[in-house]
Design a protein around this nucleic acid. Structure first.
Length: 363
DNA sequence: TCTGGGGTCCTAGGACCC
DNA sequence: TCTGGGGTCCTAGGACCC
């Protein structure tokens, strides 16, 4: 593979595809009788007593104020008559895989982002934004014809702008932002729309009087660095619409984990240890299938008050044995199984991964 | 309102080595 | 008896993404 570094001055055309309410859209397609009714994909609401959150919901459900990430018990209060379904990941993965395959064919560089989003670098495929728009329309049509699902597309000079653009008009939207209009496009939007500005950072920025991306762009960089360290510089660049990051397919996973929230908080530590054994078995199965070996085991414990701890250990050499996972995880968990504290969640993660082949040379 | 499950990356401190 | 600077690895926590 020839590696020619891209010059900073090279213009790029980046396209971001975001499937509209993906899980709910797939469910609607599979169940025509859902059409026109609020559909909520997520945890079992159990008549308002359920734990867990809304994964995705359709626009009919959003009219009731339901949105993804919302506790399912609250969604139930707002919309008890909705159709509630458990996520069917097998189906979503199959659908996603077909869509990603279709998209990949039209890109110089491709990057999947979760099951329902993707970045395409289409610089060499289209000569100008007009052609880019035409390609986007073609992709939307192809996806709809083959999958009966709509998507929203954003086009911009980099990933950041393309992603914000795809979110600008939904559902079934198409937003093109040329290089010369980037600042005008971003300035009035709330800072929260920027990639990597979540709830916490939004609040800290708001406290500094920074509400919009325009406010952030105009703010003194050194003051941002003082507050946010290296990220301060990043935020300031993002606010100007500057993002040099490449569209690149992700490599192999760097960690594998399983976690579960108990139906009721528990201080039955035998149950907790038995659950750790089960989670260990599941991850073990996965790494063996993927021909992976690991060195680090980490246990995660969440108490009833949501206080969360992780405790990990790196073993002296690579292994893929179930008993190494289970024994290490149990030992690590012991510190937390004291004083009768009620436990809400337990998890096990493996990291420092290598492929079994690679391991022979590492050993 | 009471907060899932799967990940990634960053930071900061300590251990250890030269 | 007092003690630098750099590099790497490990660990815990936290913010963020879908």
């Amino acid at each position: 593979m020839s590696v020619r570094p891209r010059k900073v001055t090279d213009r790029r055309i980046i396209l971001h595809v975001d499937m509209d309410q993906f899980f709910a859209a797939v469910e609607e397609r599979e169940h025509p009788e859902f059409k026109g009714r609020p559909v909520i994909v997520g945890a079992d609401p159990k008549g308002g007593e359920g734990r867990g959150v809304v994964s995705t919901c359709n626009y009919e459900a959003r009219k009731f104020g339901v949105h993804s990430g919302m506790p399912i018990s609250r969604a139930w209060k707002r919309c008890p008559d909705a159709i509630y379904v458990r996520p069917n990941f097998k189906l979503y993965i199959e659908t996603s895989t077909r869509i990603m395959k279709l998209l990949r064919r039209h890109a110089d560089e491709f990057e999947r982002w979760g099951l329902d989003e993707a970045f395409l670098d289409i610089t060499s495929k289209v000569r100008n934004l007009k052609k880019a728009r035409r390609l986007a329309e073609e992709l939307k049509l192809k996806i709809y014809r083959s999958e009966k699902i709509t998507c929203s597309i954003g086009i911009g000079p980099n990933k950041l702008v393309a992603k914000i653009a795809s979110d600008y008009k939904k559902p079934d939207g198409l937003t093109v932002v040329g290089e010369s209009s980037v600042k005008r496009f971003l300035a009035p939007l709330p800072v929260r729309r920027l990639l990597w500005v979540g709830k916490k950072t939004e609040r800290r920025l708001n406290e500094m009087g920074i509400k919009t991306i325009g406010d952030l762009a105009a703010f003194d960089v050194s003051a941002l660095v003082e507050r946010f360290g290296a990220m301060g510089t990043q935020y300031h660049l993002f606010a100007q619409g500057i993002d040099e990051s490449e569209v690149a397919e992700r490599g192999e996973a760097k960690s594998v984990s399983r976690e579960t929230t108990f139906e009721k908080d528990t201080n039955d530590y035998d149950l907790v240890l038995a659950t750790i054994n089960e989670l260990s078995q599941e991850i073990h199965k996965e790494i063996v299938e993927d021909r992976k070996v690991f060195r680090t085991v980490t246990v995660k414990i969440r108490y009833e008050n949501f206080e969360t701890h992780t405790h990990g250990k790196t073993l002296p050499s690579f292994t893929n044995r179930l008993q190494d996972i289970q024994k290490t995880a149990r030992e690590l968990a012991q510190n937390y199984l004291r004083g009768d504290r009620m436990i809400r969640l337990v998890g096990v993660r493996l990291s420092t991964l290598a492929s079994s082949k690679e391991q022979r040379t590492l050993a």
